[in-house]
Design a protein around this nucleic acid. Structure first.
Length: 601
DNA sequence: CTAGGGTTAG
């Protein structure tokens, strides 16, 4: 009887097994506790301990608290706190359990303040203490405390502990200090997969995919086995870089090692294929999945949206509803994004309103951003201005920036100036804004304004992000910057590019020098500036280094420039190569002299 | 009582 498992409380009503409580020994109570999940059950058990005078049994109380902190809610943590407070001299194990609960229930500050109490009790933190607390520091953005914990871990000789070390790395990475994370990582003699995962994830999330991938190669060289988490971060790095070949290799690895049973891995694969320009790859992963959660559907919806397939986005959304999967805020971002990129204003507003009214999802700043883009793209510039002006939350400079680029594409200089004033009040350090407005002024021939803006930009110390395009050849990602002369093949590459431009001109290409805003530059100089744009460098690098007939895939960090866009169209027909260019906001598939965006972007 | 995670407007 004493060893009999406690009955499964969940299925029975309390009255049925209250007699059982009375005949049970504490040991079976102990073994049943971890299986009890609901607060109601736990309270029943506590009531039982009072009846049997076991309410002060430390072992039982510890188990009770552990049950509360396993999958904690605010209520179960309050209850755990009550139990905890009644214990006269809690040990570090009990504190650890509380830390776990608080950090898992999104109450990081409570974890941190409880830790101070533990220190006041003269308790020494152990290897179980640090992971929960470091996580709490990340959530609470308490980086000072995080660093103090790091020092403490060093003092206690726990900084290289296999459980502590990854969380230390993660704490720095989560504080936007990947270099700090790298320093922790460098100090480990024999990093395990988990430590590699932490640092790779840190780089991937800080948009430093190259470093992430080189650590991934290091991991492989050390004969460590990548797991599902490794694969997630590596795939997101591939997606950032547009490294399709590596992504495909990872996909093979995933299949070979049975990692495709993880829904998250498949979702990351969908995203990777979509962002590397292979919508077909994304679709085939999606269709291979036996189980699809909200995130998987969202990733597929966003994939269609990115590739400008608005109709597929809508039908996917309907199919998702038929499959009884609830949409989330990201699903709606995909929907709104698709509407704005396909010019479906009414449809967009319908989804926007249904979000909160039907699905109870409160629109966030990114949803508002889509709506501004939706109106702006459609040329409803004043409506967009009014929309931002009447928002229930304070607009970010990004929202105004969205409208600024709509003003630019619709050539509305007057409104652009007003929008620029709004931006400058919030953030005057963004070089791109000055460039957009100054280009608009230049097109209107207002050279004094161009000059004033340039001076203002220099005065504010605003810098424009340099254009950068990358292309993957033989598993190596090559990056090119506008006017790049430092790449190791630059001379051969420049000669090839000069040759290419000559050929293009023979079939009617006229460099659009009006895009180079510089009153003092000669036309010839402008043409050279235009010729060495990063996207042209990357495309001609691809032409030189990949077999004839294969698709060229280029990724650019900014919007594609108009001249490069028309050049790419001509190249696709002249050399009979498909070019897929991913710019900062969408895909351009160049084929037979045409682009999938229909020249509207 | 231990860690690491994918999808997010412009």
């Amino acid at each position: 009887m004493a060893t009999a498992p406690f009955p499964p409380v969940i299925q029975q009503s309390p009255s049925q097994h209250s007699s059982y409580y009375n005949t049970t020994y504490p040991s079976s109570l102990l073994s049943c506790l971890p299986k009890c999940t609901s607060l109601k059950e736990l309270k029943q058990i506590q009531a039982f301990t009072i009846k049997t005078h076991l309410q002060n049994d430390l072992q039982i109380l510890t188990k009770l608290i552990n049950s509360c902190t396993q999958n904690p809610t605010t209520a179960s943590m309050d209850y755990a706190h009550q139990l905890f407070e009644a214990i006269p001299q809690p040990d570090i194990v009990l504190f650890n359990s509380m830390f776990r609960g608080y950090s898992r229930s999104n109450a990081p500050l409570k974890a941190i303040s409880l830790f101070i109490k533990a220190l006041n009790y003269n308790l020494l933190p152990d290897d179980y203490t640090f992971p929960s607390l470091l996580k709490a520091c990340v959530v609470a953005k308490a980086f000072q405390q995080g660093k103090q914990l790091h020092c403490l871990a060093i003092k206690l000789g726990l900084n290289e502990n296999p459980y502590v070390c990854p969380t230390l790395i993660n704490m720095y990475a989560g504080s936007n200090d990947v270099d700090g994370a790298q320093r922790v990582f460098d100090e480990i003699l024999e990093p395990c997969v988990v430590s590699y995962n932490a640092i790779i994830t840190g780089y991937a999330r800080s948009s430093r995919p190259n470093e992430a991938l080189s650590l991934f190669r290091q991991l492989q060289a050390r004969k460590l086995k990548p797991n599902d988490v490794t694969v997630l971060s590596v795939l997101s790095s591939c997606a950032l870089l547009g490294a399709l070949d590596l992504g495909k290799w990872i996909h093979e690895y995933v299949k070979k090692n049975g990692l495709d049973k993880y829904v998250k891995v498949n979702t990351a694969l969908i995203d990777m294929y979509a962002k590397c320009g292979s919508l077909d790859g994304a679709i085939s992963v999606f269709e291979s999945m036996s189980l699809r959660d909200t995130q998987a559907w969202s990733a597929m919806i966003v994939a269609y949206a990115m590739h400008g397939q608005g109709q597929d986005v809508m039908s996917m959304f309907e199919e998702m509803a038929r499959a009884n999967v609830q949409p989330d805020e990201i699903t709606f971002l995909g929907l709104l994004y698709a509407c704005s990129h396909t010019g479906l204003v009414d449809e967009g507003f319908r989804y926007f309103y249904s979000m909160s009214e039907v699905y109870g999802i409160i629109p966030g700043i990114k949803h508002y951003g889509c709506m501004v883009d939706l109106l702006g793209r459609a040329g409803l510039l004043h409506e967009a201005y009014k929309f931002i002006d009447e928002l229930p939350i304070k607009p970010t400079p990004i929202l105004w920036r969205t409208l600024l680029s709509s003003c630019s594409s619709h050539g509305n200089l007057e409104l652009a100036k007003q929008v620029m004033n709004q931006i400058l009040e919030l953030d005057d350090s963004h070089g791109g804004d000055y460039v957009i407005l100054s280009n608009l002024c230049a097109r209107a021939g207002k050279w004094e304004d161009v000059d004033t803006l340039r001076k203002l930009m220099i005065h504010k110390g605003a810098v424009k992000i340099p254009g950068c395009s990358s292309i993957e050849v033989d598993n190596v990602v090559h990056e090119f910057f506008s006017g790049d002369g430092v790449h190791y093949v630059s001379t051969a590459l420049h000669r090839a590019l000069d040759e290419l431009v000559k050929e293009l001109k023979s079939v009617g290409y006229v460099p659009d020098t009006s895009l180079v805003v510089h009153p003092d530059m000669e036309d010839e100089e402008k043409e050279i500036t235009l010729r060495y744009h990063s996207e042209k460098l990357a495309i001609s690098f691809g032409l030189l280094n990949t077999p004839p007939g294969t698709t060229i895939r280029v990724v650019k960090n900014l919007r594609v420039c108009g001249d490069c866009h028309s050049a790419a169209k001509l190249i696709s027909s002249l050399i009979d190569r498909e070019i897929i260019l991913r710019d900062v906001q969408r895909f351009h598939h160049f084929k037979d002299g045409k682009c999938s965006c229909g020249d509207y972007w």
